[in-house]
């Protein structure tokens, strides 16, 4: 999975897609994931990091991560052949 490299991420949780002009808001954990995706971190590594950082079991993180990434796809924020 990789996201559009030109996405502008702000500390306030504001995300701007310069190619479409759309903007988005994310919560802190969502922002953290977007940053890691932008750095080309692998899905497995991101999930591992989340598991180590947050009070949640792997199953929950796996499920929510999948859902979040699907959401990114739906919002067309991912690279086409990522």
């Amino acid at each position: 999975m990789s996201i559009k490299k030109n996405l502008a991420l702000s500390d306030t949780g504001f995300v701007f897609n310069p190619s479409t002009g759309d903007s988005y808001s994310v919560n802190p954990i969502g922002l953290e994931i977007l940053r890691m995706l932008k750095e080309n971190k692998k899905d497995e590594d991101i999930k591992k990091h989340l598991l180590a950082t947050y009070q949640a079991d792997f199953e929950t993180i796996e499920k929510d991560y999948y859902d979040f990434v699907k959401g990114l796809e739906q919002l067309k924020l991912t690279e086409n052949n990522g």
Binding site: S10, T12, G13, F14, F16, S23, S25
Partner: peptide, 11 residues
């Protein structure tokens, strides 16, 4: 600036 829109939107 977009920054202004960001500020009113997020804060």
């Amino acid at each position: 600036d977009l920054k202004e829109f960001e500020t009113i939107t997020t804060l």
